[in-house]
Amino acid sequence: MLRFFGSRLLRAAVTIVMVVTFAFIVLRLSGDPAQIIMGADAPPEAVDAFRTAWGLDQPVWLQYFHYFGAIFQGDLGRSMRDGRDAIVLVMERIPATLALTIPALLIKLGLGIPAGITAALHRNSFIDRAVMLMAVAGFTVPSFVLGLLLVLVFAVQLGWLPSGGQESWRHAILPIITMGVGGAAVLARFTRSAMLEVLGQPYIRTASAKGVPWRAVVWGHALPNAAIPTVTIVGFMVGSLIAGAVVVESVFSWPGVGRLLVVAVANRDLAVVQCILLLVAATMVTANLVVDLLYGLLDPRLRNQPKRATGAA
Protein backbone atom coordinates (compact mmCIF):
# COMPACT_ATOMS: atom_id res chain seq x y z
CA MET A 1 0.00 0.00 0.00
CA LEU A 2 2.79 2.39 0.94
CA ARG A 3 4.67 1.45 -2.17
CA PHE A 4 1.62 2.19 -4.26
CA PHE A 5 1.27 5.66 -2.76
CA GLY A 6 5.01 6.26 -3.04
CA SER A 7 5.14 5.43 -6.73
CA ARG A 8 2.14 7.65 -7.42
CA LEU A 9 3.74 10.55 -5.53
CA LEU A 10 6.98 10.11 -7.44
CA ARG A 11 5.11 10.06 -10.72
CA ALA A 12 3.30 13.27 -9.81
CA ALA A 13 6.60 14.95 -8.90
CA VAL A 14 8.21 13.90 -12.18
CA THR A 15 5.23 15.25 -14.09
CA ILE A 16 5.49 18.62 -12.33
CA VAL A 17 9.19 18.85 -13.17
CA MET A 18 8.39 18.04 -16.79
CA VAL A 19 5.73 20.72 -16.92
CA VAL A 20 8.11 23.31 -15.48
CA THR A 21 10.76 22.29 -17.99
CA PHE A 22 8.25 22.43 -20.80
CA ALA A 23 7.13 25.90 -19.74
CA PHE A 24 10.74 27.04 -19.63
CA ILE A 25 11.62 25.62 -23.03
CA VAL A 26 8.54 26.92 -24.76
CA LEU A 27 8.62 30.33 -23.20
CA ARG A 28 12.36 30.92 -23.52
CA LEU A 29 13.18 29.44 -26.89
CA SER A 30 10.18 30.79 -28.73
CA GLY A 31 11.86 34.04 -29.60
CA ASP A 32 13.50 36.92 -27.83
CA PRO A 33 11.04 38.13 -25.19
CA ALA A 34 12.87 41.46 -24.97
CA GLN A 35 12.28 42.21 -28.63
CA ILE A 36 8.68 41.05 -28.39
CA ILE A 37 7.85 43.19 -25.39
CA MET A 38 9.82 46.25 -26.40
CA GLY A 39 8.80 46.16 -30.05
CA ALA A 40 10.97 45.87 -33.14
CA ASP A 41 11.97 49.54 -33.26
CA ALA A 42 13.03 49.89 -29.61
CA PRO A 43 16.52 51.37 -29.10
CA PRO A 44 19.19 48.65 -28.55
CA GLU A 45 20.21 50.08 -25.14
CA ALA A 46 16.65 49.79 -23.88
CA VAL A 47 16.44 46.19 -25.11
CA ASP A 48 19.76 45.37 -23.42
CA ALA A 49 18.63 46.96 -20.19
CA PHE A 50 15.44 44.93 -20.34
CA ARG A 51 17.43 41.73 -20.92
CA THR A 52 19.65 42.43 -17.92
CA ALA A 53 16.68 43.30 -15.75
CA TRP A 54 14.91 40.02 -16.55
CA GLY A 55 18.08 37.88 -16.54
CA LEU A 56 17.75 37.15 -20.24
CA ASP A 57 21.45 37.82 -20.91
CA GLN A 58 22.59 34.76 -18.96
CA PRO A 59 23.25 31.33 -20.49
CA VAL A 60 20.11 29.32 -21.01
CA TRP A 61 21.03 26.53 -18.57
CA LEU A 62 21.68 29.10 -15.85
CA GLN A 63 18.34 30.72 -16.57
CA TYR A 64 16.80 27.28 -16.25
CA PHE A 65 18.21 26.72 -12.78
CA HIS A 66 17.26 30.19 -11.65
CA TYR A 67 13.84 29.57 -13.03
CA PHE A 68 13.43 26.38 -11.03
CA GLY A 69 14.74 28.02 -7.89
CA ALA A 70 12.42 30.97 -8.27
CA ILE A 71 9.36 28.80 -8.87
CA PHE A 72 9.90 26.71 -5.79
CA GLN A 73 10.22 29.91 -3.78
CA GLY A 74 6.82 30.95 -5.07
CA ASP A 75 8.26 33.64 -7.32
CA LEU A 76 6.51 33.30 -10.63
CA GLY A 77 7.72 36.54 -12.11
CA ARG A 78 5.98 39.78 -12.76
CA SER A 79 3.67 40.63 -15.58
CA MET A 80 5.83 42.17 -18.26
CA ARG A 81 3.02 44.55 -19.08
CA ASP A 82 2.21 46.28 -15.83
CA GLY A 83 4.96 44.97 -13.56
CA ARG A 84 2.62 43.39 -11.00
CA ASP A 85 3.29 39.95 -9.60
CA ALA A 86 1.91 37.37 -12.02
CA ILE A 87 0.74 35.15 -9.18
CA VAL A 88 -1.26 38.03 -7.67
CA LEU A 89 -2.87 38.82 -11.01
CA VAL A 90 -3.87 35.19 -11.42
CA MET A 91 -5.07 34.73 -7.84
CA GLU A 92 -7.32 37.76 -8.17
CA ARG A 93 -9.14 36.06 -11.02
CA ILE A 94 -9.58 32.64 -9.44
CA PRO A 95 -12.74 33.43 -7.40
CA ALA A 96 -14.54 34.65 -10.51
CA THR A 97 -13.63 31.48 -12.39
CA LEU A 98 -14.63 29.21 -9.52
CA ALA A 99 -17.95 31.04 -9.30
CA LEU A 100 -18.67 29.58 -12.73
CA THR A 101 -16.89 26.25 -12.67
CA ILE A 102 -18.07 24.94 -9.30
CA PRO A 103 -21.81 25.32 -10.03
CA ALA A 104 -21.14 23.95 -13.50
CA LEU A 105 -19.42 20.92 -11.96
CA LEU A 106 -22.43 20.34 -9.72
CA ILE A 107 -24.70 20.43 -12.77
CA LYS A 108 -22.44 17.97 -14.58
CA LEU A 109 -22.49 15.54 -11.66
CA GLY A 110 -26.16 16.01 -10.87
CA LEU A 111 -27.34 15.55 -14.43
CA GLY A 112 -24.68 13.39 -16.03
CA ILE A 113 -24.27 10.54 -13.56
CA PRO A 114 -27.99 9.77 -12.96
CA ALA A 115 -28.66 10.06 -16.69
CA GLY A 116 -25.83 7.65 -17.51
CA ILE A 117 -26.93 5.13 -14.88
CA THR A 118 -30.56 5.29 -15.99
CA ALA A 119 -29.58 4.82 -19.60
CA ALA A 120 -27.41 1.80 -18.79
CA LEU A 121 -30.11 0.16 -16.67
CA HIS A 122 -32.62 0.57 -19.49
CA ARG A 123 -30.33 -0.33 -22.30
CA ASN A 124 -31.78 0.13 -25.79
CA SER A 125 -34.99 1.54 -24.36
CA PHE A 126 -36.42 4.88 -25.36
CA ILE A 127 -34.79 6.52 -22.32
CA ASP A 128 -31.41 5.10 -23.27
CA ARG A 129 -31.67 6.37 -26.82
CA ALA A 130 -32.83 9.79 -25.69
CA VAL A 131 -30.00 10.10 -23.18
CA MET A 132 -27.42 8.95 -25.70
CA LEU A 133 -28.72 11.32 -28.34
CA MET A 134 -28.52 14.19 -25.87
CA ALA A 135 -25.06 13.03 -24.83
CA VAL A 136 -23.78 12.92 -28.39
CA ALA A 137 -25.35 16.30 -29.10
CA GLY A 138 -23.83 17.76 -25.95
CA PHE A 139 -20.46 16.41 -26.94
CA THR A 140 -20.54 17.65 -30.52
CA VAL A 141 -21.80 21.17 -29.92
CA PRO A 142 -18.76 23.28 -29.11
CA SER A 143 -19.13 25.37 -25.97
CA PHE A 144 -18.73 28.64 -27.82
CA VAL A 145 -21.52 27.74 -30.22
CA LEU A 146 -23.80 26.62 -27.40
CA GLY A 147 -22.97 29.78 -25.47
CA LEU A 148 -23.67 32.04 -28.41
CA LEU A 149 -26.90 30.22 -29.24
CA LEU A 150 -28.04 30.67 -25.63
CA VAL A 151 -27.15 34.36 -25.88
CA LEU A 152 -29.06 34.63 -29.13
CA VAL A 153 -32.18 33.06 -27.59
CA PHE A 154 -32.19 34.25 -23.97
CA ALA A 155 -30.40 37.58 -24.23
CA VAL A 156 -31.10 38.86 -27.74
CA GLN A 157 -34.52 37.40 -28.58
CA LEU A 158 -36.18 37.01 -25.20
CA GLY A 159 -34.15 39.57 -23.28
CA TRP A 160 -34.38 37.55 -20.05
CA LEU A 161 -30.72 37.39 -19.17
CA PRO A 162 -27.66 39.56 -19.81
CA SER A 163 -25.33 38.45 -22.57
CA GLY A 164 -22.04 39.13 -20.85
CA GLY A 165 -20.22 40.79 -17.98
CA GLN A 166 -20.11 40.09 -14.26
CA GLU A 167 -22.36 42.60 -12.55
CA SER A 168 -24.79 40.24 -10.83
CA TRP A 169 -25.58 36.57 -10.29
CA ARG A 170 -27.86 36.71 -13.31
CA HIS A 171 -24.78 37.20 -15.47
CA ALA A 172 -23.47 33.84 -14.31
CA ILE A 173 -26.49 31.79 -15.35
CA LEU A 174 -25.80 31.43 -19.07
CA PRO A 175 -22.09 30.61 -18.71
CA ILE A 176 -22.83 28.03 -16.02
CA ILE A 177 -25.51 26.36 -18.14
CA THR A 178 -23.19 26.40 -21.16
CA MET A 179 -20.48 24.57 -19.28
CA GLY A 180 -22.72 22.31 -17.24
CA VAL A 181 -24.73 20.92 -20.13
CA GLY A 182 -21.73 19.99 -22.26
CA GLY A 183 -19.93 18.36 -19.34
CA ALA A 184 -23.04 16.49 -18.23
CA ALA A 185 -23.28 14.96 -21.69
CA VAL A 186 -19.70 13.69 -21.55
CA LEU A 187 -20.22 12.33 -18.07
CA ALA A 188 -23.51 10.63 -18.96
CA ARG A 189 -21.86 8.85 -21.86
CA PHE A 190 -18.98 7.76 -19.72
CA THR A 191 -21.09 6.63 -16.77
CA ARG A 192 -23.33 4.65 -19.09
CA SER A 193 -20.47 2.70 -20.61
CA ALA A 194 -18.85 2.12 -17.21
CA MET A 195 -22.17 0.85 -15.89
CA LEU A 196 -22.78 -1.40 -18.92
CA GLU A 197 -19.35 -2.89 -18.51
CA VAL A 198 -20.07 -3.76 -14.90
CA LEU A 199 -23.56 -5.08 -15.61
CA GLY A 200 -22.02 -7.59 -18.00
CA GLN A 201 -19.73 -9.03 -15.32
CA PRO A 202 -20.27 -12.53 -13.94
CA TYR A 203 -20.61 -11.35 -10.33
CA ILE A 204 -23.76 -9.45 -11.28
CA ARG A 205 -25.24 -12.59 -12.74
CA THR A 206 -24.16 -14.52 -9.66
CA ALA A 207 -25.80 -12.01 -7.35
CA SER A 208 -29.00 -12.12 -9.38
CA ALA A 209 -28.90 -15.90 -9.48
CA LYS A 210 -28.57 -16.04 -5.69
CA GLY A 211 -31.87 -14.23 -5.54
CA VAL A 212 -30.58 -10.83 -4.45
CA PRO A 213 -33.25 -8.28 -5.38
CA TRP A 214 -32.32 -6.35 -8.53
CA ARG A 215 -32.38 -3.06 -6.66
CA ALA A 216 -29.82 -4.40 -4.18
CA VAL A 217 -27.70 -5.79 -7.01
CA VAL A 218 -27.60 -2.35 -8.60
CA TRP A 219 -26.90 -0.42 -5.43
CA GLY A 220 -24.65 -2.96 -3.75
CA HIS A 221 -22.67 -4.43 -6.64
CA ALA A 222 -23.04 -2.48 -9.86
CA LEU A 223 -22.78 1.13 -8.71
CA PRO A 224 -19.68 0.82 -6.51
CA ASN A 225 -17.79 -0.97 -9.27
CA ALA A 226 -18.94 1.42 -11.98
CA ALA A 227 -17.82 4.29 -9.75
CA ILE A 228 -14.18 3.31 -10.17
CA PRO A 229 -13.67 4.40 -13.79
CA THR A 230 -16.06 7.31 -13.32
CA VAL A 231 -13.81 8.67 -10.59
CA THR A 232 -11.13 9.24 -13.23
CA ILE A 233 -13.19 11.54 -15.35
CA VAL A 234 -14.65 13.35 -12.37
CA GLY A 235 -11.10 13.88 -11.15
CA PHE A 236 -10.24 15.37 -14.49
CA MET A 237 -13.22 17.71 -14.20
CA VAL A 238 -12.18 18.77 -10.69
CA GLY A 239 -8.65 19.29 -11.95
CA SER A 240 -9.83 21.58 -14.69
CA LEU A 241 -11.91 23.80 -12.40
CA ILE A 242 -9.40 26.59 -12.91
CA ALA A 243 -8.69 26.14 -16.59
CA GLY A 244 -11.95 24.72 -17.82
CA ALA A 245 -13.60 28.01 -18.64
CA VAL A 246 -11.21 29.57 -21.15
CA VAL A 247 -13.63 29.57 -24.04
CA VAL A 248 -16.80 30.18 -22.07
CA GLU A 249 -15.30 33.12 -20.18
CA SER A 250 -14.32 34.63 -23.52
CA VAL A 251 -17.82 34.17 -24.90
CA PHE A 252 -19.43 35.87 -21.91
CA SER A 253 -16.67 38.44 -21.21
CA TRP A 254 -16.34 36.97 -17.71
CA PRO A 255 -13.20 38.31 -16.00
CA GLY A 256 -11.77 35.00 -14.83
CA VAL A 257 -8.50 33.12 -15.23
CA GLY A 258 -9.39 31.93 -18.71
CA ARG A 259 -10.04 35.44 -19.97
CA LEU A 260 -6.78 36.54 -18.36
CA LEU A 261 -4.98 33.73 -20.16
CA VAL A 262 -6.39 34.63 -23.57
CA VAL A 263 -5.48 38.28 -23.11
CA ALA A 264 -2.01 37.39 -21.82
CA VAL A 265 -1.47 35.07 -24.78
CA ALA A 266 -2.54 37.77 -27.21
CA ASN A 267 -0.19 40.27 -25.50
CA ARG A 268 2.60 37.70 -25.16
CA ASP A 269 2.82 38.34 -21.45
CA LEU A 270 5.26 35.54 -20.59
CA ALA A 271 5.03 35.61 -16.82
CA VAL A 272 1.25 35.46 -16.64
CA VAL A 273 0.99 32.60 -19.15
CA GLN A 274 3.69 30.65 -17.31
CA CYS A 275 1.97 31.23 -14.03
CA ILE A 276 -1.38 29.97 -15.31
CA LEU A 277 0.26 27.03 -17.07
CA LEU A 278 2.00 25.93 -13.88
CA LEU A 279 -1.04 26.52 -11.74
CA VAL A 280 -3.24 24.47 -14.05
CA ALA A 281 -0.68 21.69 -14.23
CA ALA A 282 -0.32 21.62 -10.47
CA THR A 283 -4.10 21.41 -10.05
CA MET A 284 -4.38 18.65 -12.62
CA VAL A 285 -1.51 16.66 -11.16
CA THR A 286 -2.96 16.97 -7.68
CA ALA A 287 -6.38 15.89 -8.90
CA ASN A 288 -4.85 12.93 -10.75
CA LEU A 289 -2.90 11.99 -7.66
CA VAL A 290 -6.04 12.06 -5.53
CA VAL A 291 -7.80 9.96 -8.16
CA ASP A 292 -4.97 7.43 -8.12
CA LEU A 293 -5.09 7.23 -4.35
CA LEU A 294 -8.88 6.87 -4.44
CA TYR A 295 -8.43 4.08 -6.95
CA GLY A 296 -6.16 2.39 -4.48
CA LEU A 297 -8.80 2.67 -1.78
CA LEU A 298 -11.75 1.74 -3.99
CA ASP A 299 -10.14 -1.12 -5.83
CA PRO A 300 -7.99 -3.46 -3.75
CA ARG A 301 -6.80 -5.21 -6.92
CA LEU A 302 -4.78 -2.17 -7.92
CA ARG A 303 -2.82 -1.92 -4.70
CA ASN A 304 -0.85 -5.05 -5.25
CA GLN A 305 -0.16 -4.88 -8.92
CA PRO A 306 2.51 -2.51 -10.19
CA LYS A 307 0.81 -2.04 -13.55
CA ARG A 308 -0.68 1.28 -14.58
CA ALA A 309 -4.32 2.05 -13.93
CA THR A 310 -5.41 3.20 -17.33
CA GLY A 311 -9.13 3.30 -16.59
CA ALA A 312 -11.77 2.31 -19.05
CA ALA A 313 -11.51 5.35 -21.28
Binding site: T15, L261, Q274, I276, L277, V280, A281, M284, N288
Partner: peptide, 12 residues
Protein backbone atom coordinates in the same frame (compact mmCIF):
# COMPACT_ATOMS: atom_id res chain seq x y z
CA UNK B 1 -2.46 13.79 -19.57
CA UNK B 2 -1.59 16.32 -16.88
CA UNK B 3 -2.35 19.41 -18.93
CA UNK B 4 -5.62 20.29 -20.58
CA UNK B 5 -4.69 20.40 -24.24
CA UNK B 6 -6.25 23.81 -24.79
CA UNK B 7 -3.95 25.42 -22.21
CA UNK B 8 -0.92 23.72 -23.72
CA UNK B 9 -1.90 24.79 -27.21
CA UNK B 10 -2.55 28.35 -26.10
CA UNK B 11 0.87 28.73 -24.51
CA UNK B 12 2.70 27.22 -27.46
Amino acid sequence: ASLPFLILALSV
